[in-house]
Design a protein around this nucleic acid. Structure first.
Lengths: 196, 196
DNA sequence: AAATTAATTGAACGGCGTCCAATTTTTTAA
DNA sequence: TTAAAAAATTGGACGCCGTTCAATTAATTT
């Protein structure tokens, strides 16, 4: 049996998330399984359920971790950068998605049952990433257009997401596009050209 | 047992695709199963495998059918339309995705194993939808910029896709966006403003 | 009518998420 | 210190899944 006194509940949670994220990143969402995570940490499947309650809750926590890493890598890329911060953010978006394909893809492959909302903390993480883009867009907008930063950020995030998604899922390859990042940057520039 | 002489191999294939697409549209990709399709058409699971060879091949055929319907609805929307054809195409994109959520979502939720390419006929269907957009964009481009229609169409498709994806997966709801179609149209207009 | 070919079946396999009674460990109370 | 209560952990059982394949049935050919 167990290793009951080896870990507190919090340590165990962290252990499972650590191993779970490792496995998810390695095998991808389609091949990921809670049972395999249990094996990986040396506990039984029942313990996973005791800690997380369900497969969906585990997946949501793992995707939350991906969002944490994503936000950190985005901020790291922008730190100290003087010029072309928006372009740098787009590059960071693509680099993260390409460099952590499986984890990034799982953010969108996994869906809660219809009608169910992600937890407050998950929504906060999404909002945090969005917030960075809102801030960067506000910075390049004329001061009398600052209130358009949020809707514009949402829309440009969607545009960049679409480019990144097509780059990863093979659509762009099928259509002969060989510079998705360049195309995404061009679309963002087009949108901002409105204001100059 | 069987209904051996009830259907030719082609009829059987069509029967399975019909019922399969009906079920996929009803329950969505996550709950879809080949076994249930077999029940639905009154054959055994083995017959599905005899006709399609694998679950992946069945899914690809079903997604191909979705692309067929999508292309038809896009062309129907444009038929006879004189003005704002690009806006109409964007509306058709969203209407299709929203009106057939499960079928549309399955196009992206289902992924072939890494490295495997979709069949030639599947790629042709994707190219056909793209082709419509290339044609529409070429029509509004200045004549000396016609060779930019293809790359621009790819990029704008990605942008619209991103907006549509966020509209369906809840990201836009999370971020407070309440007019995804309007936002998508605005981004397309921004891109075309380059040329005027 | 017999032999050959093709279509169809469904049990079997290993894997999945989920549940939960039984067990073990820890904590609390006496 | 010991007994009772609470918490953690286990792993078998359930009903699904995609996949395979020997056995069976039906159609076709000889």
């Amino acid at each position: 049996m167990g290793r009951r006194s080896d870990h507190t509940r919090e340590e165990l949670r962290e252990l499972i998330l650590e191993e779970g994220h490792r496995q998810l990143s390695e095998v991808g969402f389609a091949r990921f399984s809670a049972r395999e995570v249990a094996k990986g940490v040396g506990y039984s499947i029942g313990t996973i359920y005791n800690v997380f309650g369900s497969y969906n809750a585990l997946m949501l926590a793992l995707n939350g971790r991906t969002l944490d890493i994503w936000l950190a890598s985005l901020e790291e890329r922008l730190a100290g950068r003087e010029n072309d911060r928006l372009d740098a953010a787009i590059e960071a978006y693509f680099d993260f998605a390409l460099g952590r394909r499986h984890a990034w893809t799982a953010l969108y492959d996994f869906r809660l049952p219809e009608g169910e909302l992600p937890s407050e903390s998950y929504r906060e993480k999404v909002a945090a990433i969005t917030g960075v883009i809102v801030r960067e867009i506000a910075a390049v907008l004329p001061s009398d257009a600052r209130d358009e930063a949020l809707p514009l950020a949402r829309s440009l995030l969607a545009s960049v997401h679409g480019h990144c998604f097509f780059a990863l899922n093979g659509t762009f390859t099928m259509l002969g596009e060989d510079d998705p990042v360049g195309a995404a940057k061009a679309r963002v520039a087009d949108a901002l050209a409105r204001y100059s």
